[in-house]
Design a protein around this nucleic acid. Sequence first.
DNA 1: TATTAGCACTCCCTCTTAATGAGTGCTAAC
DNA 2: GTTAGCACTCATTAAGAGGGAGTGCTAATA
Lengths: 344, 344
Amino acid sequence: MLTNRQLQILQVIVDDFVTSAQPVGSRQISKKEWITTSPATIRNEMADLEELGFIEKTHTSSGRVPSEKGYRFYVDHLLQPISMSAREIGLFQSVFKNQIVEMEQVIRESANILSDLTSYTTILLGPNVSKHRVKRFQIVPLSEQTAVAIIVTDNGHVENRTITLPQGFVPSDIEKTINILNERLVGVSLLELQSRLELETFNVLRQHVNTADSFIQSLRNVATFQNEGKIYFGGKTNMFNQPEFHDLNKVRALMEMMEKESQVISLFQHEDAGIHIRIGSENNHLVMDDLSVITASYSIGNDQEGSIAIIGPKRMDYQRVVSLIDVMRSGLSGALSNKVNDGL
Amino acid sequence: MLTNRQLQILQVIVDDFVTSAQPVGSRQISKKEWITTSPATIRNEMADLEELGFIEKTHTSSGRVPSEKGYRFYVDHLLQPISMSAREIGLFQSVFKNQIVEMEQVIRESANILSDLTSYTTILLGPNVSKHRVKRFQIVPLSEQTAVAIIVTDNGHVENRTITLPQGFVPSDIEKTINILNERLVGVSLLELQSRLELETFNVLRQHVNTADSFIQSLRNVATFQNEGKIYFGGKTNMFNQPEFHDLNKVRALMEMMEKESQVISLFQHEDAGIHIRIGSENNHLVMDDLSVITASYSIGNDQEGSIAIIGPKRMDYQRVVSLIDVMRSGLSGALSNKVNDGL
DNA sequence: TATTAGCACTCCCTCTTAATGAGTGCTAAC
DNA sequence: GTTAGCACTCATTAAGAGGGAGTGCTAATA
């Protein structure tokens, strides 16, 4: 168990290192007015803290730097919520109050604001469409052989695919197909759509419509959706400002990671909802060893969610980011749920 | 006018510098088997070439490097088409032959292949939708107040917007609106759509439908499209491999540029069609001073086009890239025009 | 007259060395 | 338990030396 004085010292080390990016020495700590002991005493305490694994040296005679364990302890025990400045609050309100029409735009703006305020990189995961429910099917023929199939969901999301029509398919066949699909599948969630099609709808189609297997295959494709929401980035190049990223290889690795959708998505995986902080190697990804990720999820209406992530150096201003992400999550939830209730 | 020997020497300097990224010295040039003169003579010629502005030194006693004027001359007069390897041809065919369904996917893959083959960054501009023609309007109500308006174009492209319905708008009003829109606007290009709405359709609507000005405003929004095609990137991080980009600030500036849509679009602006090469400062953009951009356009069907750009260091393998981009342009044009003819 | 060998000179790059300074750990005194 | 004092470590910076690649010029050569 850490003594009070050790807690104080650990806190100063983390806080100072977060702002300066320089190893923190005993003299520097002793300068804080609320620290009354001499540098020598602090050095003894630091030796203990190091032995316990909370801080480490960059070389034999350097100041101390928080270890991952140190950050973890700081995040778990020393973090205190801070309040936001008027300017920040204003910025948030500008996105949410401003009657913005499209959900997509709200999310996009949010990502930018968050990255501006933190000067870290922000990733927003849009809501997963798989819980939307079908509102309407439509098939619009383009030519003898092709048509566009459209699904409108209860949230106003529109999915569309180009499909191939069977030989000899006539307009009345299209009408019939549309009717069958709408009769049977309106209200079904996109997640269930595939299985519902297989289990019943295809059979009905085969009975009533001059159809072909290739057409059914096309419809199968229509019902296949991306499993995850769309990804929005804010401040992709912000990491260039961080001194720990003055190394080209690191920047490069990070940039490459962000180009790969699956790797980005994996940053968001969590057992439960709430605000999560993953520090350095806790991300289980070599590229992320020097980075921390703070994630939270926001909700839209009753059962849909999206996620927010802020990626910064391990030496991240956790207090601030946690506060900001919390405000953003509730702001987004509020703004977007309203839209849903309005039927949008 | 340059002598034959000067042409030869300039060519060697450009070719060698392109592959090695190192200033080229007289001795190195004299080693080429088809160069028969001694280093001393070559030095004299180089002094002349330098005076004429085609090459320059990085410092007093360094080898020579092509100047922008030198590259320009090389590109205009010394470039010879090269043939592609079997492997490369195979790669291209895999995108175009493979019966890929969605146009978007073909474009995306093309960007990746091109960046893989060149190890530069590729940008593809999707076709501009403004020349598509309306195939069908659809309005799907979501709630009392909101609905989704959908436009399907003759190419199978789907545009959609959420709109607000006027108070007291009933289903039959929606039916009427859909009919009016489809009667009057099918076949109109998206470019003209706005003006056609204003000139006639809105008046008809006002006569037949219990409508409101807010509704008309919504429809106006529906007819507003992005002016340019979608942007696809390939090999965004390839520039990290180029030795001239071992400077963090340059990489950063480039990355930031690529995040800004308008700046990316401006790379494509050209008076006429065909393959264009812009070298360094010819791009009129500070960030691009060390970069060259080769652009070409591809066509889809009769009157739509998209563009291809390859961004590399000024020290770019112009011959190869020009060949590749030319193959890609005709391949893309062929593949996508077929799709259009199939009605897709 | 065009070409070339020879040579002094320039500038970059790398390696070494020395000086500086921030910070530590330990010991002994308070 | 705390602290002053001091020897020690290591990163960082600056200055200097040596080597190498390449040039420009001059004088000799074909």
